[in-house]
Design a protein around this nucleic acid. Structure first.
Lengths: 137, 137
DNA sequence: CGGAATCCCAATGGATACTG
DNA sequence: CAGTATCCATTGGGATTCCG
């Protein structure tokens, strides 16, 4: 591959650059689902980057047991967090960011800080766009 | 709001922080769909951050006319690009990043560079996880 | 050329009930 | 407590056809 932008290698063709399928969309799509960012954010600010299942469940408003489990399984599969099971009665399970999971936080923070700065303007743009669409059909 | 992390304000409750619904997930979910990042990436490296519909269509492998149109409409609605229509025969339409759209590129680049660095390790983790799951049920 | 409209299928994710 | 299993409504997105 000659070049890469946004993590995606691309080749120059006669009608412009053509990207080849690879990571960024895949990961962004994973992180962009309904709950993943919230789970990561909670672990980010937790002491030791570690929380138990019920703490996540109570902290994330509206999440169901099923979706929290699925989200945690995916993050565990990606190597972004570890699952610690304590076979007590009743059982206790803690989730902890891995080194890779923690290393993602600055990049995520950089991106979300842009979002925080530009969100109000985006909202204005959306309302203006919708208003214009209604106005002239 | 007392605190904010990853662009999301949160309140401290007796059982940990509770985030309130707001921007980051929404934007990440939008950018994390199947084609948005590819469109942004193409405009990022285009001269003048500007390309016509057919250039995007040919550059992005596998995208359908419908999905390219929808993706561009959403980005336009968000104020991240502008649509320039030239009423010639045949018609020509160009899409150009706005100032806000261009301002997103460094943050996106920061995030995707993390992805590029960690993608191989993530793939390893996934294969190890899947292999372990098959092994012991 | 650059769409819009329609049809259809697969995936996402919510609600609920059950379990070690 | 921390799941798993099942059912079901909604959405995402591909294929195709038609239009200015």
């Amino acid at each position: 591959m000659d070049h890469a932008i946004h993590g995606r290698p691309y080749e120059q063709t006669n009608d412009g650059p053509r990207f080849r399928p690879c990571a960024p969309h895949g990961v962004l799509a994973r992180l962009g689902d309904k709950w993943t960012i919230l789970v990561m954010s909670h672990l980010a600010i937790a002491t030791g980057h570690r929380l138990r299942f019920s703490e996540l469940k109570h902290g994330i408003d509206g999440i169901t047991q099923r979706m929290l489990t699925l989200t945690l399984r995916n993050l565990e599969r990606d190597g972004l967090l570890n699952r610690h099971y304590f076979p007590e009665v009743p059982p206790r399970v803690e989730y902890e960011l891995t080194a890779m999971g923690a290393s993602m936080l600055p990049a995520l923070e950089g991106f979300t800080s842009w979002i925080r700065d530009n969100w109000p303007h985006m909202e204005e743009c959306r309302q203006a766009f919708d208003a214009a669409k209604i106005k002239h059909g």
